[in-house]
Write a protein that binds this DNA or RNA. Structure first.
Length: 444
RNA sequence: GUACCUAUAGCUCAACGGCAGAGCGCUUGUCUGUGGAACAAGAGGUUCCGGGUUCGAAACCCGGUAGGUACCCCA
């Protein structure tokens, strides 16, 4: 054992420690429950795809894709999101699925970006999409699921900003920027919150907009008001442009459906400056935002009616949402929004040499009753074992003392308060279940 | 991909170019069947890596790596 390899992992990739995993699993489980409560079905796809599958509508994002050749010189890429694989899946399996197809997909994706807070090269997305419905009712259902998901994980302050791709196109036309350069205008408009109206105006002028056009754009995107106010304003300014008219009608319809579905009104708002970077969106787009910490959006989505068609030759409408686990966890940790346990074990069974067979029997009974119990493997003193269990975050310890067992009893200790009781063996399961239930009630 | 900041014990951080330290944590003991407090003792270092300047480098210079931040973009 002379030389040793240096343990290291790639930039932007991370190990997840048990405590982090417990929180991540809790978040993903809650999101999964919301998805299933809305009738979405689970799906998984390979992490690797042919490169040409990934690049079709990627635009600028293509340079952020992990790309390599396999041993057979095939061009391979790690998936960049879960939406493109879904479109490929729908095109391949149209005979296996019934439209509308509602699926959710919780899995890692990879982007070769420079890591920052809330930004990694490997990260997990929780996607839910509806394929096959053209109506804004599907968009409303997607947003409804979106809002429910954020509330279920404690991000009750997250607000879903909603805009429409065609409304942005109308703004670009208004600014005098032709279609193929419109994406540049979208990006400038999207920076409003970050750099302020003056700088947006300057950048629009630099990009080729006239002063009057730039001022008109600013008037639209900087106005504040109710959703109806904003849509009325947009209609009066952009109603003369076909894309604008379509966008406003669809947004009005979307809002109406959101109300019909009972989505809480403070869960979403129209935001005429919202852009979204991915090129495949064709209709309404949305993004979940939190004020603090400053990590950008915690999820996004929108309608992408042309994406499946790039694989199939005929378009199938689709809309969906995507939640970013890493940023969500960042917010939860910053504000301590979810009660988390530090251990899967609920009870530690102290190891005492003379009583180990009886302790093992009791441990089996507890497991059979659904209680997670960690049998101590230590030969150290009882005190050391209790200290270790508490350090791991296990709430209770069972002490199988010889005196207790001689009377068919066992001692149960609350490791956070130090309270200890001695109870009949037969009553232990019921007592522990009761204590664990009380504890769960307290923390939620 | 560009720019700036940072890297010293497990953690948080000190140390004028001159012996590498503190607090917390950890181990052991005071304590024979019970942790957390107190006290005492102890372990723990390639000062990120490589080169250079210097009598002498944790410190100064160059390169690399990693982390952070701002752009770009984005979950």
């Amino acid at each position: 054992m002379s030389g040793s390899r240096k343990p290291q992992i790639l930039k932007g990739f991370r190990d997840y420690l048990p405590e982090q995993m417990l929180l991540r699993q809790e978040v993903m489980q809650r999101i999964r429950r919301v998805f299933e409560s809305h009738g979405f079905e689970p799906l998984d796809t390979p992490v690797l795809e042919y490169m040409e599958i990934l690049t079709g509508k990627a635009g600028e994002n293509e340079k952020l894709m992990y790309h390599f050749q396999d041993a057979g010189e095939r061009e391979i890429g790690l998936r960049y999101d879960l939406t493109v694989p879904l479109a490929r899946f729908v095109a391949m399996h149209q005979n296996d699925i019934a439209l509308p197809f509602k699926r959710y997909h919780i899995a890692p994706v990879w982007r070769a970006e420079k890591p920052q807070r809330g930004r990694f090269r490997e990260f997990w997305q929780c996607d839910a999409d509806i394929v096959g419905i053209e109506s804004t009712l599907a968009d409303a259902e997607a947003v409804s699921t979106f809002v429910d998901a954020y509330r279920a994980i404690g991000l009750t302050n997250a607000v879903v900003a909603i805009n429409h791709r065609k409304l942005l196109e109308a703004l670009a036309l208004m600014a005098g920027v032709p279609g193929d350069r419109a994406a540049g205008v979208f990006r400038i408009i999207d920076k409003l919150d970050k750099i302020g109206a003056d700088k947006v105006r300057t950048e629009l002028l630099d990009f080729g907009a006239s002063e009057t056009a730039a001022d008109a754009v600013l008037r639209i995107i900087t106005t504040r008001g109710t959703n109806d106010d904003l849509l009325d304003l947009a209609e009066s300014e952009l109603g003369g442009i076909e894309q604008g008219r379509i966008a406003i009608n669809e947004l009005r319809s979307l809002v109406k459906h959101l109300q019909a579905l009972g989505v809480p009104a403070d869960g979403y708002r129209i935001d005429l400056a919202l852009a979204r970077g991915i090129d495949y969106y064709t209709g309404p787009v949305w993004e979940a935002q939190v004020e603090e910490p400053k990590i950008g959006s915690v999820g996004g989505g929108g309608r992408y009616d042309g994406l499946v068609g790039t694989f199939l030759g005929r378009d199938i409408p689709a809309t969906g949402i995507s939640l970013g686990i890493e940023r969500i966890v960042e917010v939860i940790q910053e504000f301590d929004l979810l009660p988390t346990s530090r251990s899967t074990a609920q009870v530690a069974m102290v190891n005492i040499e003379e009583t180990i067979s009886q302790a093992g029997e009791i441990a089996r009974e507890l497991r059979a009753a659904g209680i997670n119990i960690d049998q101590s493997l230590s030969s150290k003193s009882i005190g050391q074992q209790l200290k270790y269990a508490d350090r791991r975050g296990i709430p209770y310890a069972l002490i199988p003392g010889t005196e207790e067992l001689a009377n068919n009893q066992i001692s149960l200790k609350n490791l956070s308060t130090g309270d200890q009781i001695t109870i009949d063996r037969d009553l232990a399961i019921g007592k522990i279940q009761q204590l664990l239930n009380d504890q769960k009630g307290d923390s939620e």
